[in-house]
């Protein structure tokens, strides 16, 4: 009996990561040309998952605090575009990064004013913000993609220290900090309580608004870093770059919620989810799959991830308006 319990608890936590690992290994086994296990390709995948990982990390912290932030599709793109345009205008690295910070701060303030008190329906508000940001982004960049052509940026983006690409350090450091913050500090604990049961949290004397302001602050700081790194990695800012990350980030987050602490969004799950999504994207590119395949696979993975994550609570979740 005891043993059965242990096994089932182990399976609860690690079944999905094991399935994902087997899946990836099968892909590798049937496609010997796909050099997943070589360090070079793994470096590429890790670099790709850096941006996705950071955005998903911000999204996860929002979800943990009880608000699903759907506005990433617009905000991330807008911040990145502001950074890229400023770089092209010759403002210099530091000024451009600070400018991007100012934009993130403004978006953060608007977001907090509208959503911290749970006065309005969060999903619709996020959709509105997303479309507003996308509109501003398009006006600001004139609907064009912007290329940086900056040597310092290129050397930084392609360089590595002791074999680990520069960008990946951001991923590692920020994940470690966020993990410790969410799981091992008092404030992180409060963020989790607020997300679990806002009413109970308020009854125990937690200031809901304050905790949400804190959680959103961390999330937007992460979006800021990710949005600046995105043009650095690609050498430019694509129009609506945020849109391309929205679906994978949600898939990574909700796929992550089906492991480690099943039914709850957790940071380690999110990291595994992000790396898995990057591997799949990398594999599709390797296959030279028709471009329609990518949205199809992303959509199915999102649905599968959410279905796995909600397996324990299959009641209807309403979106009150």
């Amino acid at each position: 009996m005891m043993r059965n319990k242990k096994i089932s608890s182990f399976l609860n936590k690690y079944a999905v990561p094991i399935i994902l690992l087997v899946f990836v290994l099968l892909i590798q086994a049937f496609n010997p040309g796909f050099h997943l296990l070589t360090w070079t390709n793994f470096q590429v995948i890790l670099t790709q998952s850096t941006i996705l990982g950071l955005i998903s990390l911000g999204l996860s912290i929002c979800v943990i605090s009880g608000v699903t932030d759907m506005s990433i599709g617009g905000t991330v793109g807008l911040i990145g575009a502001v950074f890229a345009v400023s770089m092209v205008k010759g403002n210099g690295m530091v000024v451009s990064i600070l400018l991007a910070l100012v934009v993130s701060a403004v978006l953060y303030i608007i977001f907090t004013l509208l959503l911290a008190k749970s006065k309005y329906p969060s999903i619709i508000i996020c959709i509105c913000l997303m479309f507003i940001c996308m509109g501003i982004e398009r006006l600001y960049t004139d609907g064009k993609s912007i290329w940086l052509n900056n040597e310092t940026v290129q050397t930084f983006a392609t360089g590595n220290v002791i074999g680990i690409p520069n960008l990946v350090y951001f991923l590692i450091v920020l994940y470690v900090i966020s993990y410790i913050f969410i799981n091992h500090t008092k404030s992180g604990y409060k963020i989790r309580i607020v997300g679990e049961n806002a009413t109970a949290a308020v009854e125990t004397g937690i200031n809901l608004t304050k905790i949400r302001i804190l959680a959103f602050g961390i999330a937007f700081a992460l979006y800021w870093i990710a949005s600046v790194l995105e043009p650095v990695r690609l050498g430019g800012s694509q129009l609506y770059a945020g849109q391309t990350y929205m679906l994978p980030a949600m898939a990574a987050t909700f796929l992550g919620s089906s492991m480690i602490t099943p039914g709850r969004v957790n940071l380690i799950g999110t990291l595994i989810g992000s790396i898995f999504m990057s591997i799949i994207m990398n594999f599709l590119t390797f296959l030279g799959a028709e471009f329609y395949f990518i949205p199809l696979v992303q959509g199915l993975l999102l649905l599968a991830g959410v279905a796995l994550g909600t397996m324990r609570d299959r009641s209807i979740k309403q979106v009150p308006l």
């Binding site: 759907m70 909700f254 279905a307 909600t310």
Partner: peptide, 13 residues
């Protein structure tokens, strides 16, 4: 029991 926003967004893609 999937959140309707997420289910239909996945379907969109």
């Amino acid at each position: 029991g999937i959140d309707s926003f997420i289910a239909t967004l996945g379907m969109q893609f």
